[in-house]
Amino acid sequence: RLIESLSQMLSMGFSDEGGWLTRLLQTKNYDIGAALDTIQ
Rank of each mutant, 00 (worst) to 15 (best):
L2G: 06
F14Q: 02
E4W: 06
I39Y: 03
I39F: 04
A35E: 04
K28N: 14
L21D: 01
M9R: 01
M12Y: 07
T38Q: 14
L24V: 06
L24Q: 01
Q8L: 14
N29L: 08
S5F: 13
G19T: 02
W20G: 02
M9I: 06
I39N: 01
T22Q: 05
S7K: 15
I3T: 11
W20V: 04
G13V: 06
L2D: 07
K28R: 08
T27S: 15
I3S: 14
R1S: 13
S15H: 13
F14V: 03
S15Y: 10
S11N: 13
A35P: 04
T27F: 10
G13F: 08
Q8W: 05
Q40W: 10
L21M: 05
T22F: 00
R1P: 10
G33E: 15
S11H: 12
Q8R: 12
N29S: 07
R1E: 12
I39P: 03
L24W: 05
G19N: 07
M9A: 06
L25S: 01
R1N: 13
D31S: 05
L24S: 01
L2F: 08
G18P: 02
F14G: 03
G33I: 14
G13W: 07
E17F: 10
I39E: 00
L36V: 08
T22K: 03
Q40A: 13
A35M: 05
L10P: 02
I32K: 04
D31M: 05
L21K: 00
D37Q: 14
S11K: 13
W20Q: 04
D31T: 04
A35G: 03
S7N: 15
D37G: 08
Q40N: 14
G33M: 14
Q8Y: 10
L24M: 05
M12T: 06
L10N: 07
L25I: 05
T38M: 12
W20F: 06
G18M: 08
L24T: 01
L36P: 03
T27R: 12
T22L: 03
T38P: 02
Q8D: 08
E17G: 06
D31F: 05
G13M: 07
S11E: 15
G19D: 06
M9D: 02
Y30T: 05
W20T: 02
K28I: 14
T22I: 06
D16F: 02
E17M: 09
A34L: 13
Q40T: 13
Y30M: 10
L6F: 03
D16S: 00
Q40S: 12
G33S: 14
G13Y: 09
G13R: 00
L10D: 05
L25V: 02
L36Q: 03
Y30N: 09
Q8M: 12
A35I: 11
E17W: 10
A34E: 10
Q40R: 15
S15E: 10
D16K: 01
S5G: 08
R23K: 13
I39H: 02
L36T: 03
L24N: 01
L10S: 08
M12D: 05
K28T: 15
L6H: 00
T27C: 14
M9N: 02
D37W: 04
Y30I: 06
D16I: 07
W20N: 03
A34Q: 12
T27N: 13
D16G: 02
K28E: 10
D31E: 08
Q26K: 12
D37A: 14
R1I: 10
F14A: 02
E4S: 11
S15F: 09
I39R: 01
S11L: 12
I3P: 09
S5A: 15
G19F: 07
L10F: 08
D16Q: 04
I39V: 06
D16E: 03
K28D: 07
Q26W: 05
S15K: 09
L6T: 00
Q26N: 08
R1Q: 10
G18C: 14
Q8S: 08
R1Y: 09
E17L: 09
S11F: 06
G13C: 13
I32R: 02
S7T: 14
L21A: 00
D16H: 04
A34I: 08
S5L: 13
L2N: 05
K28W: 10
A35L: 08
L6D: 00
K28A: 12
I32F: 07
Q8N: 10
L6V: 06
L21S: 00
W20H: 04
I32N: 04
S11R: 11
S5Y: 10
L2M: 08
L2K: 06
Q26A: 10
L24R: 00
G33N: 13
M9Y: 03
A35K: 02
R23P: 01
Q26E: 14
G18N: 12
G18V: 06
T22V: 07
D37P: 02
A35S: 07
R23Q: 11
L36M: 10
G18F: 09
D31W: 08
G18R: 04
D37H: 12
A35Y: 04
R1G: 12
G13H: 05
L6S: 00
S7H: 14
E4H: 11
Y30H: 08
I32P: 05
L6W: 03
W20K: 03
G13K: 00
L10Y: 03
T38H: 14
L6I: 07
L10G: 06
L10R: 11
L10Q: 11
Y30L: 09
L25H: 00
L21V: 05
Q40D: 09
R23Y: 05
D37V: 13
K28P: 07
S7P: 01
N29A: 10
F14M: 04
M12I: 06
K28M: 15
F14Y: 14
M12E: 07
R23W: 05
Y30V: 04
S5V: 14
A34W: 06
L24P: 01
G19C: 12
M9W: 07
M9S: 01
W20E: 05
M12R: 06
L2H: 06
S7A: 15
S5M: 11
S15I: 09
S15V: 11
R23L: 11
D37I: 14
E17N: 09
D31P: 05
N29F: 10
W20D: 04
S11M: 13
Y30W: 10
L6Q: 01
W20M: 04
W20L: 04
L21R: 00
L36E: 01
G33H: 13
D31K: 00
T38S: 14
T38N: 08
I32S: 04
E4T: 10
T27M: 14
I39M: 07
S11A: 15
I39T: 03
K28H: 15
L24E: 02
L21N: 01
L6R: 02
I32L: 07
G19Y: 08
Q26V: 13
I32G: 03
E17I: 12
S7F: 11
L24D: 01
L24K: 00
D31Q: 03
Q40G: 10
M12H: 08
A34M: 10
L2P: 05
T27Y: 11
Y30E: 04
G33L: 15
S11G: 13
M12Q: 08
R23H: 11
E4V: 11
S11I: 12
I39K: 04
F14P: 02
L21T: 00
M12P: 04
A34G: 07
Q8H: 11
T38A: 15
M9P: 00
L6Y: 02
T22M: 04
R23N: 12
Q40Y: 14
D37R: 12
L25K: 00
Q26R: 10
T38L: 12
R1W: 11
Q26S: 07
M12N: 06
R23M: 10
L21G: 00
T27E: 15
G19V: 00
D37T: 11
Q26F: 05
M12G: 05
Q8A: 13
G18T: 08
L6P: 00
T22H: 03
G18L: 08
L36H: 03
L2W: 07
L2T: 03
D16P: 04
A34C: 10
A34N: 09
S7V: 11
I3F: 13
F14T: 02
Y30F: 13
S7W: 09
G13S: 03
R1F: 09
L36W: 07
G33D: 15
R23I: 11
Q26G: 08
